[in-house]
């Protein structure tokens, strides 16, 4: 066991569908120390999303089954702790920023309603309570923190009335409501245009640094890795193939798969190679 805020040890997960069993994670280990910015990168199907869902306790069992390993949060194994204790952490101590701002907000409730509900039950799990007015004050405060210009108007809106970038900010605000220590971001902004995505990533990075949060960024995009992390885990076919400081990785990738991944990034000047030093993005 390490003293990292989040430590995944030798995690193996298999999925059984229609009588067929697939080993999706094969002994994955990773560390997210407090206040660190870690990236988990890999192509679709590499197992990064399953890892994330296992950490958040969102795997549906069945079809999924954790066959071995531990997930330590603050020294406690999430996989063996009582469900009640586990639920206390989800959405509060560790929280998630969702990927698709268009589909991750409930279309028929206002932002205030949705954020208020999350806060209400987070408070209840933590044995706190606050009145409706205080709850709304907190909602407006967090919306302001994600650089929303008019938090009160935004909170009264339905998702359809907001732009993609604004919705993504709302999703970040939702994750920050209960002041988590660990933020897991699932490719935020992938569904947005590049400029907006850059703004969102910048905002996320600023927020994480301001508050001293730990960030686990799940992504397939090496550009995002470079922007948002200082340590990176590369996954392929359910295995962590390489992990090292982000700068080192771009400098001299060791694993064949990592090299292929870097080579696959398109360049503005034509061709596909990042070049030796990976200078221009």
């Amino acid at each position: 066991m390490s003293d990292a805020l989040l430590a995944v040890r030798n995690l193996s997960v298999q999925f059984t569908t229609y009588g067929q069993t697939n080993q999706v994670l094969k002994g994955v280990s990773l560390d997210v120390p407090a206040r660190s910015q870690i990236a988990l990168v890999g192509e679709s199907g590499s197992g990064k999303t399953v890892t994330m869902r296992a950490i958040m306790g969102l795997l549906r069992t069945p079809p999924a089954k954790v066959t071995s390993g531990e997930i330590f949060y603050d020294g406690h194994d999430l996989l063996t702790m009582p469900t009640k204790e586990r639920l206390k952490l989800r959405g509060t101590a560790m929280s998630m920023v969702f990927q698709d701002p268009m589909s991750s907000l409930n279309p028929v409730f206002t932002i205030a309603d949705q954020m208020g509900t999350i806060l209400k039950y987070a408070d209840r799990r933590l044995g706190r309570s606050r009145g409706n007015r205080e709850r709304m004050a907190r909602v407006h405060e967090v919306l302001g923190q994600v650089r929303m210009r008019d938090p009160e108007r935004v909170s009264r809106s339905y998702p359809i009335m907001l732009s993609g970038g604004m919705r993504q900010r709302v999703l970040i605000a939702m994750a920050l409501l209960s002041e988590p220590k660990l933020l897991i971001a699932d490719e935020p902004g992938t569904a947005l245009d590049v400029t907006t995505q850059a703004q969102i990533l910048k905002l996320l990075k600023d927020l994480v640094e301001e508050r001293g949060l730990a960030l686990l960024m799940i992504t397939h995009n090496l550009g995002v890795v470079r922007e948002t992390s200082n340590y990176v885990y590369v996954m392929n076919k359910g295995v962590v193939v390489e992990h090292r400081p982000t700068a080192d990785l771009f400098e001299a990738p060791r694993d064949d798969y990592t090299r292929a991944l870097i080579a696959a990034v398109p360049r503005l000047t034509g061709g596909t190679s990042f070049g030796k030093a990976g200078a221009a993005a």
């Binding site: 969102l58 989800r90 959405g91 969702f98 991750s104 999350i118 039950y121 987070a122 994750a175």
Partner: peptide, 17 residues
């Protein structure tokens, strides 16, 4: 199966709600 239901699960909204 919509994302927003999965999201509310991740944010710890209880099942009856």
């Amino acid at each position: 199966s919509q994302d927003y239901i999965e999201a509310s699960r991740a944010f710890g909204v209880p099942e009856p709600i």
